[in-house]
């Protein structure tokens, strides 16, 4: 995988999107294993109902992991300088995640040619679940 050229990209350009399989209870169980996050809010419906919520829901970090895949399918991971996310809505079982990103700024940072990207993880109806940004070094 090679780095995209800084000069060839413009503010407003979109990077290739990523659409996931629907989030299932199995996905949440696998994510609990892989991440080590076994919080019952994501696994135990009885517990969740006792806390006043209707059903288990996805780990926020699962959505951020999908946004990480969006970045690393576009550039090698070592090009990522920073990556941050705000979790704005809960992702429920059955929802398919659509991850998109666009360049919002071209900057020079610590002598490196970088772009700042705005990333969104939304459901298929377009409801944003996570809004993120990342700074990535280009060639």
């Amino acid at each position: 995988m090679t780095l995209p050229s800084f000069d060839a990209l413009n503010v407003g350009d979109e990077i290739p999107s990523l659409t996931t399989e629907p989030v299932s209870r199995l996905t949440l169980a696998l994510y609990a294993t892989g991440s080590g996050d076994h919080h019952p809010l994501h696994l135990d419906q009885d517990y969740v109902r006792s806390k006043g919520m209707p059903d288990v829901f996805a780990h926020g970090m699962l959505g951020m992991a999908y946004l990480g895949r969006l970045l690393t399918q576009w550039v090698p991971q070592e090009a990522i300088r920073s990556f941050g996310v705000r979790f704005t809505a809960i992702t429920w079982v059955g929802e398919r995640m659509v991850c998109t990103g666009k360049i919002v700024e071209k900057i020079e940072q610590d002598g490196e040619k970088c772009v700042r990207l705005e990333l969104t993880c939304a459901n298929e109806q377009g409801e944003a679940k996570h809004k993120a940004d990342a700074v990535v070094v280009l060639a």
Binding site: H39, P40, L41, Y47, S50, K51, H59, G60, M61, M64, Q77, E78, I80, R81, S82, F83, G84, V85, R86, F87, I90
Partner: peptide, 17 residues
């Protein structure tokens, strides 16, 4: 109460893989 907890924001800076 950890049952009333939500993840609000998360960010990372990367220096070495």
């Amino acid at each position: 109460d950890l049952g009333k907890m939500l993840h609000g924001e998360q960010s990372f800076n990367y220096y070495k893989p």
